[in-house]
Design a protein around this nucleic acid. Sequence first.
DNA 1: TCCATCTATTGACGAACATCGATACGTCGA
DNA 2: TCGACGTATCGATGTTCGTCAATAGATGGA
Lengths: 128, 128
Amino acid sequence: MNPGTPNLAAPAAPPADLAARLKALADPARLAIVAFLREPQADCCSRGDGVCGCDLEGVLELSQPTVSHHMKVLVEAGLVHAERRGRWVYYELDTSALEALSEDLRRLGHVAPVLSRPTDRPGSTGKG
Amino acid sequence: MNPGTPNLAAPAAPPADLAARLKALADPARLAIVAFLREPQADCCSRGDGVCGCDLEGVLELSQPTVSHHMKVLVEAGLVHAERRGRWVYYELDTSALEALSEDLRRLGHVAPVLSRPTDRPGSTGKG
DNA sequence: TCCATCTATTGACGAACATCGATACGTCGA
DNA sequence: TCGACGTATCGATGTTCGTCAATAGATGGA
């Protein structure tokens, strides 16, 4: 079932996946993960180019399956990249994706510099 | 049970209420509400300085209690202001709150311009 | 090959959430 | 005062979410 864009073409409707990306971050645990990915304090096997999952468990005080679940959510939202190296999986923050999300939020607050300005609205001659 | 801040003092932990503010926006209906508040197409009683709840019902195709619930969430998150005028309640987007949220997200992606810059990082001499 | 280690998946459980119908509250006009 | 109208709250319901224990999968070393 693809609802598609509804009958009204919103002037500058938020991206369809914006809610999903926000939801991926709207959790204290995942927020803590992102904050840690930004400035990892190497503990067992993390390096400059990534943080391994085992380090996250210790920092977050969460079980391994829970951490794995949260990482999956973040990766599927495109906010974090995962790369397997041997036994470990190294996670890296996608700063550009985060910046894009920030920008989408900023656009929500301002009247968007509409990309293709149509003629103009047919006037709200509706019932007053 | 208040876990409080864990043993480690994160270098630049995200604001405590960031998850709550993100959660308030992490819903397609509320995202649509915000987008509509930004560029209201007056229908019944909305004006330049606010949108009344009855207009939102029509746009969102949601029941009145549901709309009222969503507005409460947005107001409590500080993203929307509500003002009663007679029978109606006019809602207005708090663009500065939205911008602050955007900025908090941007900070998540970059190594924060730490407020109190300590000496400097002692290089990652961690055990590899 | 076998074992240790790290990660992903499954299944279950309780909490939180989105939604609605019914109803109470507040305000305006007759 | 009373009815109409917009809004808020309550109670119920089905869904989603966060969490964990158990288990399977993947990888490297002995």
